[in-house]
Simulated scan of single mutants.
Amino acid sequence: MRLTRHPSNPVLMPNVFNDWEALNVFNPSVVFHQGLFHMHYRAQGSDYVSRIGYAVSEDGIVWNRLQRPVLSPSADFEARGVEDPRVTELDGRFYMAYTAYGRAGAHPEVGQTATGITPMYAVSDNLITWQRLGPVVVGEDNKDHALFPAKVGGRYVSFHRRPPSIWLAFSDDMRSWDGHVEVMGPRPELWDGKRIGAGGPPILTDEGWLILYHGYDDKHVYCLGTALLDLDDPSRVLKRPSTAILEPQETWEIKGDVPNVVFGTANPVVDGQVYLYYGGADRVIGLATAPLDELLAWTIAEG
């Protein structure tokens, strides 16, 4: 199965009139809330420091942007950027997974020391102002985390990545995480043979948790695929097709700040359609769609 790219692609491009997003905009989060699409996206300007911007849309294609970032680095361990937002709505609040990239240092808001590449969470009630909650893990380079849109066994569940695999962690309060367990690893000789990581928040279906994830091979070509996880035990993989559903083929997916990349970080379902938003070559944002029932049926049949 192949997703259908939208003819208006790319749906978001750098804005040369705002220095903080003049170079690259990519790897977005998108949630559908109260009839609108809300996007949070990673942006880079001339200083190459990543900040997170916000945009809103009625149709998921044409976007109106806020002219300032909604999240910027505020401590040493974020000094080189806040990256790759993934927002989940859960119990009436919005939780943003983002990667802190920087140096060692205690954060004034969360009081914990982190180094290098750290998977962080923040929370909001309005999608604009965010309060940092803290890291999933510290002391290791870790990223590609995303929160499940429902609790499992009464606990919060998050993806994260201990290279080269996708892992899970569990929490009672979104601040302390435990129960770390590996879910999936690379598959040699396939498109995801070198390293894999989670995409957007998993999609809850009657058949299981449908996930869209990225992976790359020895040629460093990033593609996207699907898998199905058990509802009650998401560490158990039920289905995992061997072929990708999206791979770089457009010029703006092949040529950019990092070549040959489609990097999906959002997959909201609206009126039965999966809207996959992804970074193209770390420069622009693309959209591809598929009916949820067809994507799920294909995953089950091919997995």
Rank of each mutant, 00 (worst) to 15 (best):
Val70Glu: 02
Val70Arg: 11
Ser74Ala: 15
Ala75Leu: 07
Asp76Pro: 07
Phe77Asn: 11
Glu78Leu: 06
Arg80Asn: 12
Val82Phe: 11
Arg86Asn: 04
Val87Phe: 06
Glu89Asn: 04
Leu90Ser: 08
Leu90Tyr: 03
Gly92Tyr: 02
Gly92Cys: 05
Arg93Ile: 13
Phe94His: 00
Tyr95Asp: 01
Ala97Ile: 12
Ala97Asp: 00
Thr99Gln: 11
Arg103Gly: 11
Ala104Trp: 06
Ala106Met: 12
His107Thr: 08
Gln112Asp: 10
Ala114Ser: 10
Gly116Asp: 04
Gly116Trp: 00
Tyr121Lys: 10
Ala122Arg: 08
Ala122Ser: 00
Val123His: 01
Leu127Cys: 03
Leu127Arg: 01
Leu127Lys: 04
Ile128Arg: 11
Thr129Glu: 02
Trp130Ser: 10
Leu133Ser: 08
Val136Arg: 01
Asp141Thr: 14
Asn142Ser: 14
Asp144Tyr: 12
Asp144Val: 15
His145Asp: 09
Ala146Thr: 09
Leu147Glu: 04
Ala150Tyr: 01
Gly153Ile: 12
Gly154Gln: 07
Gly154Thr: 10
Arg155Asn: 01
Arg155Ala: 12
Tyr156Pro: 03
Tyr156Ile: 15
His160Phe: 14
His160Val: 09
Arg162His: 14
Ser165His: 03
Ser165Tyr: 02
Ser165Leu: 06
Ser165Cys: 10
Ile166Asp: 04
Trp167Gln: 15
Ser171Leu: 03
Met174Gly: 07
Met174Phe: 05
Gly179Tyr: 05
Met184Phe: 07
Met184Trp: 02
Gly185Phe: 08
Gly185Cys: 08
Arg187Glu: 00
Trp191Cys: 14
Gly193Tyr: 02
Gly193Ala: 00
Ile196Met: 02
Ile196Gly: 01
Ile196Asn: 05
